[in-house]
Every structure is written in structure tokens, then in C-alpha cells.
Design a protein around this nucleic acid. Structure first.
Lengths: 208, 208
DNA sequence: AATAAAACATACCAACCGGTCTGTTTGCGT
DNA sequence: ACGCAAACAGACCGGTTGGTATGTTTTATT
């Protein structure tokens, strides 16, 4: 029958099942936590055999690393697009902070990230690799913030405030795991944003 | 031989082994994470038989709940002492924020708390109970903050700022799990403290 | 077409986990 | 002193997990 359709390159087959596995992994981490996401469950969800999984990801930790890399790069690219790279007008800091907020509200995104951080803390095989991915992600967000209109003076506290914001959003996501409190958190984050803006306005007034 | 020493009340025996188990539980959660802390390992660490553990804590989740209750109440009491209840002079907000910081630096404290929050997210048996303990702990800290010199007007943002601070400290602790960055975080927290003070000073100027 | 290699499928296994069950010791009430 | 219940100890078990080992199919190479 449809031989032409079934015929795929090795690379195509490989990347296809890899993608299925990683999506299933992220889904299950978000739904039941990394500790409860068994390789068997991931394979079933992905519609892939256990052998295929072990072929592409010999150890379970390989699965987690690849999954959170996918998780971060996906949002990283979206953020890069939104902040823009060329001579477009600078994004107002307000909007960038709101962008961070929206990113933190993406279902499963921070949940997976937190699960990875927690798992990595007590797993020597994970710790270094997760720490590296994490550092890159934070660095990327700091660079993005430098493309907003808040990047007035080189010695401002902008990077520190971005780092604080990231920590805050993670702490909030942690809380949402057990408490449904989105409206309240939105309100709190707006207060946070106001404090950040106010601080930068005060310290960067008349930069020259 | 020393019968008088070996002779103990049932209640004494019970509370003694309970305490041993809970301490061992907290130690292991901090050291290897909740998911990797097996009941057998906890019993071995506590020097208690498996039968004794199941007698006092039939399910593993009972162990976690009791352990984090102990975890929070321990620090809660310390905070209550420090903030004082009677007519003593009001604690400066600066010092209270520093108290929160010091609490967040206590080895194992936030690590266990975060493990509990993460485990509770995907465990129906834990979620409600952990959420309840968490809500009480946050409420207690808000009440303590009301005893500082920052509690000027009833409609200030003090409670919101305390809640933000708690989320921030948790996000920071999450980060410390994979990155050794205490000095940097101390610096960041002082920046945040400055923002909080500044905001409250601005909004509560000339209250009456 | 033949050979090799990558992709995939299935069975298997040793280790571990948490809960249950049975038996023993210790303290308490009478 | 006696009986009972709580505290404790150890054995046991079904279920699950992640990794491995072996066999089959699909693509690539020559």
C-alpha cells in the first residue's frame, strides 16, 4: 500500500519518536511529577515501545535532561521573537515583565522546570546538567531584559531585578501546585512590577 | 541493672520513637529528597524497627505530614519568640525581613518544605493537608509582620509584600539546590529588602 | 542483491518499595 | 498477680521500576 508515505529517513524516524517521547515525558512530569513518571508510562503515552525508548535514551535521566532542554528552548525562542533583535523600538520593561508572567502561566512549563530542579538537587547524574541548562536560561532572560527600555545605565540593578523576578515566579509556581490562587498571584505580581519599575526610575533618573 | 533508667511511660516511649522517626525523616528528605527517602532507610537512620514505624505512622504520607508539621512549628515558635507578643518595642521591619532570611538559610528547612510542596502537587493524599499547613505558616508570618514597626496603616501592602517575600525565598532555595550561590542571593535579598522598605515609606508617609 | 547498521519490539530480571501479618515485649489498670 | 492493650520486632508479599539482553524490522551502503 502507501509505501511512499511509510518510507521515512532514519533521521526522520529517529527524531519523530524522540519528539513523541519528549512530549510524553513533559506531559507526565507536569501531570504526576518526575518521581512518579515511570518509563513504562512515558512509553505508553508516547505510543512507543520500551525498546525504542532505551535506544534513544538509555537512562531515565537522559529523558529528563532532553525533555527540559526542549521545554526551555521552546519558550526561549518565543521570548527571543517577542523581544526582537534588530532595530525595532525597545520593548517597554512593563511588557517584558508581563511576558515573563505569561510564560510562567504556560501550563506545565514551570511545573516541569521545578520538578527538574528538585530532582537534580539530590541526583548527582542530574545536578550539573540541570544547573547548566538553568544558568543558560536565566542568562538568556537577562540578555532579553537588556533589550528593553529599562537598560539605561550599565550599572543599574536591572539584571538583579530580573533574577529576583525569576525566583519569585518559581516560588509562585511552587505555591500553585497546592493552592489555586492565580488571581491573587496576578495581583501580587503587579505590585512586584510596580516596585521594580519604581526602583529603576528612581536610580536611573537623569543618567547623564 | 538500671531499671529505673530503662523504665519509661508508654507515652514517653511513643513520643521518643516518634521524634526519632520524624528527625530521621527530615534528615533524609533534606539529603536525598522525599521520593528517594524510603521507609526502610528512615527506620535505619532513626534506629527504629519497621514495625514501630508502621505502628505510629501507618502510611508513608503520614510520616511526611508529621515531619513537615514539626519542621514548620519549630521555626514558627522561634519566630514568635523573636517578634515578641507583649508590650515590648516593635521590631523594625528590616530586622524581621532579616529574620525571614535567616530562617530560609537554616539547613534543611526550606529543602524539606519544597519537597513537601512538590510531592503534594501530584499526590491527592498529601495535597490538602500540605496546603493547609502551608496556609497556616504563611498566615503566621503575616501576623508576625503586623507586630513590626511597618504596620502603620491597615490598608498598606505589608501582607502582600510578606507573601511576595516568602515566594521569593522559596524560589531562591529552589535555586540553591543546584547552584551554590549564597553570597549572590544574600545581595539580591538585600536589594529586595530595600525595595520593600522604600515602598512602605512612600505609601505610609504622614499616616495620620 | 548482499551486508551492515540503525530503529524498534519484547521478554526478562534483580532490586526495591510500601503495606500487611504474625509474634513478642513492655507498661498499665485492676 | 493477672489480663489487656500499646509498643515494638521481623518476616513476608504483590507490585513496580529501570536497566539489560535478545530478536526483528527498516533504512543505508556498496
Amino acid at each position: 500500500m502507501s509505501e511512499a508515505l511509510a518510507r521515512r529517513t532514519q533521521q526522520q524516524r529517529s527524531e519523530s519518536t524522540k519528539a513523541l517521547l519528549l512530549e510524553a515525558t513533559l506531559d507526565l512530569i507536569a501531570a504526576m511529577g518526575w518521581a512518579n513518571a515511570s518509563t513504562a508510562a512515558i512509553c505508553e503515552r508516547a505510543g512507543v515501545s520500551r525498546g525504542a525508548q532505551t535506544h534513544h535514551f538509555p537512562a531515565k535521566t537522559d529523558l529528563l535532561i532532553a525533555a527540559i532542554k526542549r521545554n526551555t528552548s521552546r519558550f526561549d525562542e518565543e521570548f527571543e521573537q517577542r523581544t526582537g533583535l534588530d532595530g525595532s523600538p525597545r520593548l517597554p520593561l512593563d511588557e517584558y515583565l508581563d511576558l515573563l508572567w505569561q510564560g510562567s502561566q504556560q501550563p506545565g512549563f514551570l511545573e516541569c522546570w521545578i520538578e527538574a530542579l528538585v530532582a537534580a538537587r539530590t541526583d548527582p547524574d542530574l545536578r550539573e546538567r540541570v544547573a547548566d541548562i538553568d544558568a543558560r536560561a536565566i542568562g538568556a532572560m537577562k540578555e532579553q531584559s537588556a533589550r528593553t527600555d529599562a537598560a539605561v545605565t550599565p550599572d543599574s540593578d536591572l539584571y538583579d531585578l530580573i533574577e529576583l523576578t525569576i525566583y519569585l515566579l518559581r516560588g509562585m509556581a511552587l505555591q500553585r501546585g497546592v493552592h489555586a490562587s492565580e488571581a491573587n498571584q496576578k495581583r501580587l505580581f503587579e505590585l512586584w512590577s510596580a516596585l521594580v519599575r519604581n526602583h529603576l526610575d528612581q536610580n536611573n533618573r537623569d543618567p547623564g
